[in-house]
Design a protein around this nucleic acid. Structure first.
Lengths: 101, 101
DNA sequence: AAAACATGTTTATAATATAAACCAAATATA
DNA sequence: TATATTTGGTTTATATTATAAACATGTTTT
């Protein structure tokens, strides 16, 4: 009934990042920063974690002389997100069972 | 879009406990132990945390000479659970927006 | 009486999330 | 031309969490 929740995704910020990325080709650091409302430090760390896990790709380049960090979800990441949502739904249903007492 | 998630409920075990309790009058320690698959120590601590937060009531008594811990959800806890589910749904939808790049 | 069981709690440790401080380069300003 | 500010991040430090392991207290069995 309570399948274990992927600890990588069971994080407010990482989940928000994945939720955004799953719906678009790619997103920039500053865009994620604004949409999630996170601090830069936290965002930086959680992006690294997601990349380390193979859930996203990170492409670093320059635009107008400034660094530009672009993130996109991987197949693996998309699958993990889907599984997480599925597993989580088991926790949210508020099961109507008979009282065990 | 990404409302903050109640940190008290954003915990695998605490969420599982609440999910069970929301569907029944009350549940015993050993029942929760079996249903959640948690260790006794972890369960004990997370129950204390939920009580401390006013999300559950804990009634200690004896049955057949053995200690018996019974837990039930409070109004406040039920509301918090509902709110958590609502807030979380904002993270799971996989928004289809135009790519910002 | 000794060993094993029931029902938890407390303590110690490892992992996480977060904010704060830092850094390097680019641009604006005095 | 200094110097101050902005951009776009990374690193470090700290507080919180989750978890397992050890402990406690009494009960039942042999």
């Amino acid at each position: 009934m309570f399948e274990p929740l992927d600890p990588v995704l069971h994080s407010q910020l990482r989940l928000a990042i994945m939720s955004l990325l799953v719906g678009m080709e790619s997103a920039e650091f500053t865009y994620l920063l604004e949409k999630t409302g996170a601090t830069k430090g936290n965002l930086s760390i959680q992006l690294s974690r997601l990349k380390e896990e193979g859930y996203i790709d990170i492409k670093k380049s320059f635009r107008n002389n400034y660094p530009l960090t672009s993130c996109s979800i991987t197949k693996k990441g998309a699958r993990a997100f889907e599984n997480y949502v599925k597993a989580l739904s088991g926790y949210l249903s508020g099961e109507k069972g008979s009282s065990p007492d």
